[in-house]
Design a protein around this nucleic acid. Structure first.
Lengths: 231, 231
DNA sequence: TAGTGGTCTAGACCACGAG
DNA sequence: TCGTGGTCTAGACCACTAC
């Protein structure tokens, strides 16, 4: 028997009322003062429960208008995207990394457009592979802005993946992620041990540090990869 | 000029210290009491700022051990997955829906395994299309558990998409979502106006209501679709 | 303009978990 | 064991916004 009613209890109770159908989509929920009184807690406690339900997309809140159960439940899926090494090791598999190629070149047009780079900016272009228990797991096509990260020229990417190097080199940054499907070309097929034309799941990420483009990466997973989450 | 320092100010200031490199990955952050004193606010205010940073994966907190900047920044991407209709209308395009086929049948083995259904459970199998400005946008392969939702037998899915019907029929539910890549077979190619073998982005969702399986759906997007988010 | 959520305070007690 | 974060309280003022 809990001494106090916690905000978790309240959150669970409200969620139960919604899942049971007591409060249907679109319905109004009593205001914080009433809820606080009925649960016998301070308003701040109710506030936290309700605030979290709103963050999770279950309810909608507006000053003066009050709180309502969302009409069309917005599905807010959250994905944790760890370093590949972590992802593989967390599955209990052995991680291996290999550098395929490395070259300094002027940024191609598509990259300049994507990262908003000046003409004539040099970039470091790396191609790498990540293996799980010896099998190809992920193909990495990495582009690093040398105007911002000149140190990358000297870094040794034959032993350490660019991702891990970047984490140490750039403290924190803004990013844009997108998921899509791609077709395996001959090169991808070779690297990922699949057939040309196979559908592959890919993740692209552009990263900025204080409004300056740091890096763009395209990560292509082996065939059949799924990114899953519960909520 | 704000009268008080808000938890947002504090959050931004701490984030700035991290992005600027003052506090590097792995570094310890002063405890809440010290921060409250240095910002001249109550501990609860600092607590909220820190709690949100922890939720976003920027820092790690442990009782007694204190707060630290995360070693390997966990990328926590959040995607809002609205109803297709919303998705299309929000892009300023005209939405159109079409029912392709509808049939009641015993749940196939793969579905029974996925949703943990009893043998001999009947399911409603629907195939539908969603169009944006007249072009194929999304293919929907929907399976509904009739043991739980017998009303679905009588519903008219020729005018309303099953998603919208379900939202009204089942108040709220737990779900598992996964993203992956698939290859267009002849049927998909016809429906999505693409070529067989084209790589397609697909979303699968299994839904439960009070531990009972409600529905499984496979949503296949037109070629080139991307799911994007910033953080 | 009045009602509702948003936020801050100052203080308190508690639970986890590192040392 | 005891420092640190986790949470609650009772009260207050404020900012939005529907009416």
């Amino acid at each position: 028997m809990p001494q106090h009613t916690t905000y978790r209890d309240i959150k669970a109770d409200i969620l139960r009322k919604i899942t049971k159908g007591d409060w249907r989509p679109g319905a109004s929920i009593p205001n914080e003062i009433e809820l606080a009184a009925s649960y016998g807690v301070a308003r701040a406690t109710v506030n936290r429960a309700m605030r979290e339900l709103a963050e999770e997309g279950i309810i909608e809140r507006k000053r003066k208008a009050g709180s309502k159960v969302r009409m069309s439940p917005l599905r807010r899926a959250r994905f944790d995207i760890p370093l590949v090494r972590r992802e593989i090791e967390d599955q209990g598999q052995a991680y291996r990394y290999a550098l395929i190629s490395s070259a300094v070149e002027p940024a191609p047009d598509w990259l300049r457009a994507r990262l908003n780079l000046d003409a004539m900016t040099d970039v470091l272009h790396l191609v790498c592979m990540h293996f799980a228990d010896g099998s190809p797991y992920q193909y990495e096509d990495r582009w690093i802005n040398l105007a911002l990260l000149a140190e990358a020229r000297e870094a040794d990417f034959s032993v350490q993946g660019p991702n891990e190097w970047l984490v140490a080199a750039v403290p924190f940054s803004d990013a844009e992620i997108s998921f899509s499907a791609a077709s395996a070309d001959q090169s991808l097929a070779n690297h990922l041990s699949c057939s040309p034309g196979d559908p592959l799941f890919q993740l692209e990420r552009s990263t900025w540090w204080q409004d300056k483009a740091v890096t763009y990466v395209r990560l292509v997973y082996r065939p059949g990869h799924r990114m899953t989450t519960r909520y």
